[in-house]
Each structure stands twice: as C-alpha cells, then as structure tokens.
Nucleic acid binder design. Structure first.
Lengths: 198, 198
DNA sequence: TTCATTATGGATTGATCAGTTCAAAACTCG
DNA sequence: CGAGTTTTGAACTGATCAATCCATAATGAA
C-alpha cells in the first residue's frame, strides 16, 4: 500500500538513548540524533513527535531494560537475600566500568535524568518516580526476606534499608562519574553490605 | 579615573550560582543570567569573559563555601570522629531539605555538575576532582582518628571508608532530588553510620 | 570644567536551535 | 503497469543562542 521504512525503529531508539545517555537531554541536538541514528530529520519527526517524545521513549526503554534485569536478580530464589544484593552491586559495578571510553563513563541515564530534568519535566519526573517505587518495593521485599532467613542481620526497617541501598547505588554511580575505579566501587559495595550484615 | 561599577560582583556571582544550581549549565541562557543578576549583557561580559567563565567562578564559589564549612566540622576536635560524621550528615540533610520550593530541591551543584559536565568540560572536571580529593583526604583523616579513638569500629581501610561516606552523601543528594523526604534522608544517614560503627 | 576612562543599555551579529514543508522517490496492491 | 500512500532528503522557518559593537552616560583626576 505504501513505501516501507528502511530503518529499524528499535535500533534508532537505542542510538538515541545512547546519545541522551552520554550528552544529556539539553546538550543533545536534533542534528546529533540524526547523526547517531543515521536518519534524516524527516524520518525522525515522522516516527517520533518531537525531540522530547523521542527522549521519553528512549528513557522508557532504558528504565525498562535496566530495572527488568535488576528485578530478575532480586527475585532469583536460588540465592539468599544477601547474595542477591551482592549480585546487584556487581551488576552496577560492571555497568559503570563497562561503558567507559577512556577515563570515565556516562553513568546511569536514570540518575542523570533525575539531576538534569526532574525539577522541570513532569513526564520524566513521573517515569522516574514510578521506577523508583518499583525498585524500592523489590528491594524491600528482598531485605525483608533476608531479615527472615538471617542473611540480613540489620534490625532496621526494611523500607529504610531499601532506600539506603537505592541511595548507595546512586552514590556509586556518581562516584564512578567522578573518577572512581573498579576497585573503589567494589569496596563501596562491600561496605554498603556491612551496614546490612555487619 | 573612570566610571565605577554600580553593582556588587559577589552578589552577581551568587545570583548566577543559584541559577546554574537550579537549572544546570546548558539550560541557563545568558538572558537568564541577566535576569537573575539584574545586570545588562554588557556588564556581565565586561566583568566575566564568557558564560563559561562565569560558570567556573560560580562553581568555584560554591565548592569553596560548601567544602570549607564541611571541613570545619571534620576538624572540630571537640567532637569524636563518629559525632563529626553525624554532624556532617545532618548538614547534608538540612541543606537538601532547606532549599526546597514545593516538592523538590536543586540538589548539590557539585553532584549536578559531575553528572552534566564532567565528561566534556575539562576545567569543571578538574575543579571537581580537586574538591573530591580534598574531601576524601579529610574524610580519611576523620575515619582514621575514629578507628584510633574507637568511635569507628569498622576494620575496613580508612580510604575505602572515606569513599563510601562520600558516595553515601552523593546518594542522599540524588535521593533527595528523587523525592525522598527529610525522614528518609535521616534514616539513610543512620544506616550509613551503621556500616562504620555497627 | 575638561579630558581620559570605564560602565552601561540596546541594537545587532552569525550560528544554531527545534521543527516544518515540499517535491521526488519507493513501495504495495489492484 | 499505474494509482494511491508513505518515506525520505534537502531546503527552509522563525526563534533563540552566546557574544560583540557602539553610542551614550557617568565618573575621577587634572
């Protein structure tokens, strides 16, 4: 019936996501998005309503893939609660040290967007808030389970421990952007676990 | 010899700092800076070489005032090491909850700049790196002292503990921007101290 | 007062911004 | 093949960006 697309929408979304991730929303121009995706402006604006719409979809994709893989670990019943958290931290350390070109990496798009946009972009704030709730809920469940099975010895409220773990992960990501190397991140993770098991 | 200035340079710097703090570097236009300082473009460009130069001076001012007041606490010999850290965390909680208008606050300019600019602004990266070193050095000294006086019971390397505390503070600031309230931040601080004293 | 010097406001620069328009190209279906 | 529909590339739009220019105002020193 009509001319078909010659590009993969998900591929374009991935390329856009990486660009927003590396440069941030404001610093990414539509030309940058054309370059990164290999598409012309018409194709981008024909497929996505606007730069902001494209950003929302890229952020959604990032959040989905990130949180999905993290929740999978949290719900892995083969491991004790403490082991799951250890695995979660290892994933964070790996992610932070993997994406590095040269000295530093781009950190985490969720954290970056919280800093850059949460105060003046209601849609982004909403997505981030929903994701935070989801992550905190899963963390709390794991921590409660750990308190029952004895692998988490801290008597603190599991909800408070969940917020602590979530903050620790964000702190590791900021530290990574600030130049901390793998060993430094690993020791931060170890000490974070001390608070739960020590 | 010549016409004198009718404005206070430090006041202008403060106003610019607040604007960069709230909106970030990229999202702050030179017009925003004129509005915030009450100055005309000519006065700004006559006093500061460029938007970037003004930003550097604003960031330097922020770092100076922030780190100076924090180091003062760290070196307060009237308090035990653990008490100093408790005070430090209280300062962070207060700062995060004080600057709030409505729901969220602007976080911390140091963390915000790390996220936004450290990857592509060598001068900013340099200032932040220097500040991080200074803060880590002071933290390590406090933690070593605590290990000697017994108020810090963790046997971990003091340098690693310093990086952990630094990451925890950054994590609290991100959590605050993400919507965490005062009680949540306080409990994160408490649990962070568990890792050092538990 | 007069001269030298700096501060200031407003107009202006060229570049870049996000987004639109339009004609030509490319495809499907009849 | 040809009608109908969508994609695509390139030119283009008005707005805004950081930064400059210039004429005028305001000051201190002589």
């Amino acid at each position: 019936m009509a001319r078909p697309r010659t590009f993969d929408e998900d591929g374009a979304l991935d390329a856009a996501m990486r660009t927003f991730w590396e440069k941030g929303y404001e610093a990414t121009s539509t030309q940058d998005l054309c370059d990164a995706t290999g598409l012309g402006r018409s194709s981008i604006y024909n497929t996505f309503k606007s730069k902001h719409d494209l950003f929302e979809r890229a952020l959604s994709r990032y959040i989905d893939s990130m949180t999905t893989s993290q929740l999978a670990v949290m719900e892995d019943t083969r491991l004790s609660a403490a082991e799951r958290l250890r695995t979660l931290f290892a994933m964070v350390v790996d992610a932070e040290t993997a994406h590095r070109t040269g000295g530093r990496g781009p950190g985490c798009l969720t954290v970056n967007t919280t800093v850059e946009l949460v105060a003046r972009d209601p849609q982004a704030a909403d997505m981030l808030e929903r994701d935070t709730r989801r992550r905190l809920t899963a963390l709390r469940a794991v921590l409660e389970e750990g308190q029952r099975d004895g692998s988490i010895t801290s008597p603190r409220d599991a909800g408070a421990l969940a917020r602590f773990v979530n903050a620790a992960i964000a702190g590791m990501r900021i530290s990574s952007q600030g130049g901390a190397d793998r060993a430094a991140l690993e020791s931060i993770a170890d000490i974070t676990l001390d608070a739960l098991t020590g």
